[in-house]
Simulated scan of single mutants.
Amino acid sequence: MSASTISPQELNKLCESGSCDLIDVRTPAEFAEVHATQAVNKPLDRLSPKDVMQARNGSADQPLYVICKSGNRAGKACAKFVEAGYENVVNVEGGTDAWASAGLPVVRGKKTISLERQVRIAAGLLVLIGAVLGIFVHPYFAGLSAFVGAGLMFAGITDTCGMAMLLAKMPWNQGPSCSK
């Protein structure tokens, strides 16, 4: 079974009429930049469905709403919950981008470089280094460029990016604790 979805507008109406549990699974730095006012940060790379559900104070039968930047990481988080036996999880369609675009209430902080841009910068740098070293030092260094290219192709096919997972753990992406 897969998680259901909800539009940001529908979720906002639910949150206005009562309390709703909304977790944001982006990195702390991304969360600090902008997040829905009701959201609590629970980064995907450290997400424990059991811990999240236990912290809900007996409301495990109520839906848990999950949001990220655009919906992809939230979908992965929902799958983690379903695999752990918690089926009442709902992915917010379009993520925080759609939430903010709809003019719904957000908290804005310091601007950061998105994880996607960080991956593009790191991959481009590694390809460039591999090419330059391959030309000026030894042809075997071209293997670095090939390795990065293969990694990007794998990321595109599987929708899983090892470089993004590694970059998400870097200190500059941890930021201050923003959890409510």
Results as ranks from 00 to 15, higher is better:
F81C: 14
A36G: 02
F81W: 11
S48I: 12
D45H: 05
L126A: 14
G175K: 12
I135H: 15
L47Q: 02
V82W: 10
A79I: 04
I135P: 13
A142T: 10
L125A: 14
D45G: 08
G156V: 01
L14K: 05
V66I: 09
S177M: 14
P105E: 04
C20H: 01
Q38N: 05
I67K: 03
P49N: 05
S7C: 01
P139L: 09
G18H: 10
S179L: 12
D21K: 12
K80Q: 14
T160L: 06
P43V: 05
S70H: 07
L125P: 14
S101I: 01
V119E: 12
N91E: 05
S101V: 02
L167Q: 02
M163Q: 03
R120A: 15
H35Y: 09
L44I: 00
M1Y: 11
Q38M: 15
T37Q: 12
S70C: 08
S2G: 02
P105Q: 13
K50E: 08
F147Q: 06
A79L: 05
A164I: 13
I113K: 14
P176M: 09
V52L: 02
M165A: 04
N173G: 07
A39F: 12
Y140N: 10
G103Q: 05
L133D: 10
Y140A: 13
V92A: 04
V25A: 02
L22A: 00
I121Q: 15
G124C: 13
H35P: 14
K13R: 08
G58M: 01
I121M: 15
V137M: 11
A150N: 12
G85P: 14
L64D: 02
A84L: 10
C161E: 02
N91W: 08
A164E: 04
V34T: 13
S114P: 10
S114F: 04
K110P: 09
I23R: 00
T160N: 10
A39M: 15
V40L: 10
R46T: 09
S2K: 08
A60E: 15
K69C: 01
K42E: 13
I67T: 01
S114T: 15
E83H: 11
D97A: 09
L64W: 03
K111L: 06
M163F: 02
F136P: 04
V66E: 11
N57D: 07
E83R: 07
